[in-house]
């Protein structure tokens, strides 16, 4: 008797296969690095809006680039799949909502940090322990998305973010250095995954997509 297929596992594998190209990591890493560079920009040029403009600009250009790269690199190699409302689309939406919520939260805290004089005690407490809060928050967000998307490497990213931010808090390391280092690490992982993906699935001419 044929066993009943495990649809959740099949869906998870289909979804994972579409994200083994490392693009998600590269774009997430760029986004994190964008925040780090934005802070540097604000300090070096006293710009004041870099932390908003750079990540915001990245989001605006990321989607068309993402689609183009998926079409040029991923699709010819592993094929094309459209996830339905019950599957990956809702997960993809969850990613964007998650990123938007995280971005808004970050924006909110940073705007407060810039414009607030720190007269309220609870605000001081948040800012004094900002890296700790962000570290544990990152771990929680990464576990949540890693679990819902079946991407276990997000657990490692969450752990890495938490450890570096806690160390940064304890050793009083400048926040932008930590963000930039995290961003570069995630981008490097994404690039390594992309290289591995391209090697694993070499192009077989136009037939691969035109079947």
């Amino acid at each position: 008797m044929t066993e009943e297929p495990n649809l959740k596992e099949i869906e998870r594998r289909a979804y994972m296969s579409y994200h083994q190209d490392g693009l998600l990591d590269i774009f997430a890493g760029l986004y994190i690095l964008g925040f780090g560079l934005g802070i540097f920009m604000d300090i070096i040029w006293d710009f004041g809006m870099g932390v908003i403009i750079i990540p915001g600009g990245l989001i605006a250009v990321a989607l068309p680039i993402w689609i183009a790269v998926k079409r040029k690199i991923t699709m010819p190699r592993i094929g094309f799949v459209k996830f339905g409302p019950a599957g990956g689309t809702s997960k993809l939406m969850a990613i964007f909502i998650g990123l938007a919520v995280a971005g808004l939260g970050f924006f909110f805290v940073f705007t407060l940090a810039t414009f607030q004089s720190g007269s309220r005690q609870w605000l001081d407490l948040i800012f004094q322990n900002g890296m700790l809060i962000l570290g544990f928050g990152s771990l929680a967000v990464c576990i949540l998305f890693g679990y819902s998307m079946g991407l276990r490497r997000l657990y490692a990213y969450g752990l890495l973010a938490m450890i570096t931010l806690v160390i940064g808090h304890l050793l009083d390391i400048f926040f932008a250095y930590i963000l930039s280092a995290l961003g570069i690490t995630v981008i490097a992982t994404g690039v390594a995954l992309l290289i591995g993906f391209v090697k694993k699935y070499p192009l077989k001419g136009d037939k691969a997509i035109a079947e």
Partner: peptide, 20 residues
Amino acid sequence: MIMAQLYVVQSADFTFLLHQ
């Protein structure tokens, strides 16, 4: 296997099914 693969997605192409 083919039916299960197509059941969890909206649509897929031949190459994707081949790999999966």
